[in-house]
């Protein structure tokens, strides 16, 4: 299966005997495909599948009885683009006092106050999760605001730390090592296995950060 199906799908790659990796060109198309897969699953119009895992430019379907059948059907699907307000919105209060706030201000060429104002002025969307349970990769940063990871990762980043790396912003659901540039911190519980869903920032969720002060 290859090239240009008209619905954004570029290739459908077999992964072993029971999975498919569906390739698209952009993160927005991966989000749209993921949303369409969930719609079809909720409508009972998708063959049984154990996992649907969106990522940067792919969606993985794992645990399929007949991957070839689905691979043949996918290119004919109509996949509408994700609409602006078709997903739940989560607002995260943030104190913009992260250890890398000055570094990010320098990289952006603005003041530290302006970093907080710009970051809290963007509506993000959770493109996918990875790295740790409940760690969402949020897209929405314009390209001029992309920043590199820290040259030396920190051995411990606190839970709730709000960071930037490449095209993404994200929040550490718990204390862990990490290389993202930390601009602030939220008290929101990003991950709670007792809650349904356990991850506050599940793929597709819209996210806004709300400035709650700069210095402790």
């Amino acid at each position: 299966m290859s090239a240009a199906c008209g619905n954004g799908i570029q290739r459908v790659l077999p992964v072993g005997r029971h999975a498919l990796l569906v390739e698209v060109a952009t993160t927005e198309e991966a989000q749209a495909l993921h949303a369409e897969l969930l719609r079809r699953r909720d409508a009972g119009a998708l063959p049984p599948v154990r996992e649907i895992v969106p990522a940067a430019r792919t969606v993985l379907l794992d645990g399929l009885a007949d991957p070839r059948g689905l691979a043949a059907a996918l290119p004919r699907w109509d996949i509408p683009p994700v609409a602006a307000a078709d997903a739940p919105l989560v607002v995260l209060p943030v104190r913009y006092d992260g250890a890398d706030l000055a570094e990010v201000a320098t990289l952006w060429g603005v003041s530290e106050d302006e970093v907080a104002r710009v970051h809290s002025g963007i509506e993000f969307r959770v493109a996918f999760c990875g790295f740790a349970p409940g760690f969402g990769y949020l897209t929405g940063l314009p390209e001029r605001l992309h920043v590199p990871r820290r040259a030396t990762p920190r051995t411990s980043v606190p839970a709730g730390a709000v960071g930037l790396a490449g095209p993404y912003t994200g929040v550490y659901p718990r204390s862990s090592p990490g290389g993202w540039q930390i601009v602030g911190r939220t008290d929101a519980a990003l991950w709670d296995p007792e809650r349904e869903p356990a991850a506050l920032l599940a793929p597709g969720t819209r996210v806004r950060f709300e400035e709650r002060g700069r210095r402790a």
């Binding site: 154990r50 969106p54 993985l60 645990g63 996918f128 999760c129 349970p133 409940g134 869903p197």
Partner: peptide, 11 residues
């Protein structure tokens, strides 16, 4: 725990 890979949770 299958079914949670999209939240970053291994099986």
């Amino acid at each position: 725990r299958p079914g949670h890979a999209h939240l970053g949770v291994p099986r």
